[in-house]
């Protein structure tokens, strides 16, 4: 099964970071983002330090910047929100280039963008250097309830199957002159989604029956075989 190999955001390389145990990477990611979030705004030297640490980790991981950059677009809505801060925030106001801007708004916006960007970059680096299998193993090692880990492993294993099936449905719709983004064609889109749900559910039932026929009793390790 191809999905066990990597995932959409995985970058294949051989670096110390790729080889590092995934559960330690996950704990490090959690500690890093928590520290960033807990640092009060205005301590810019601390943020510069975080950025430096993150930059050296990314350099160590050998994931190229042009791989990470387009994937950072995920934070766009919040960058827009942060850019609105100086306009929407309350006083005291300062005059910059003819615009009356809120001073705490500017500071908060800058802090939002800094914290958000550090978090997104750190998460992307984790995702780029860790395969789905390793993530599942890491969660099991960190004592995440086994049923939850199992659900996630099934989801990751079949995600590609479901997404490509959905992609084929969208192509089929477009080739019949339907545009899924257009609300006027939502009834057609919804029928496709309904069919997708039925196929997912039935696939789940078949997987369960296949597991029963291989001796599944309902309790197991929660590991995804690699």
């Amino acid at each position: 099964m191809g999905a066990a190999h990597g995932h959409l955001f995985h970058f294949h390389a051989h670096s110390p970071l790729h080889r590092a145990p995934a559960h330690l990477k996950l704990l490090a990611l959690l500690a890093f983002t928590l520290t960033v979030v807990a640092t009060p705004r205005g301590l810019w030297w601390a943020y510069a330090g975080y950025a430096l640490v993150l930059a050296s980790v990314i350099a160590l991981s050998r994931v190229p910047a042009r791989y990470l950059a387009p994937r950072m677009l995920v934070e766009t809505p919040f960058v827009v929100f942060a850019l609105l801060m100086p306009v929407l925030g309350h006083g005291p106001f300062v005059e910059i280039a003819g615009l009356t801007l809120s001073e705490p708004g500017i500071e908060a916006g800058a802090a939002l963008i800094t914290k958000g960007t550090l978090g997104v970059l750190a998460s992307l680096t984790f995702a780029a250097t860790t395969t789905s299998t390793q993530i599942i193993d890491a969660l099991a090692r960190l004592r995440v309830p086994s049923l939850l880990v199992e659900i996630m492993s099934f989801m990751l294993r079949y995600l590609e199957v479901v997404l490509t099936e959905y992609g084929r449905m969208l192509i089929a719709m477009r080739s019949r002159g339907c545009e899924p983004r257009n609300p006027r064609h939502w009834p057609a889109l919804a029928r496709s989604l309904g069919a997708l749900f039925i196929r997912c559910y039935e696939r789940g039932e078949r997987v369960h029956v296949a597991m029963l026929s291989r001796g599944y009793t309902g309790a197991q390790s929660g590991r995804m075989p690699s």
Binding site: E150, I151, M152, S153, F154, M155, R157, Y158, L159, V161, V162, L163, F197, C200, Y201, R203, G204, E205, V207, H208, M211
Partner: peptide, 8 residues
Amino acid sequence: PLAGLVAA
């Protein structure tokens, strides 16, 4: 398996 597929 079912919750996993529904999650997908």
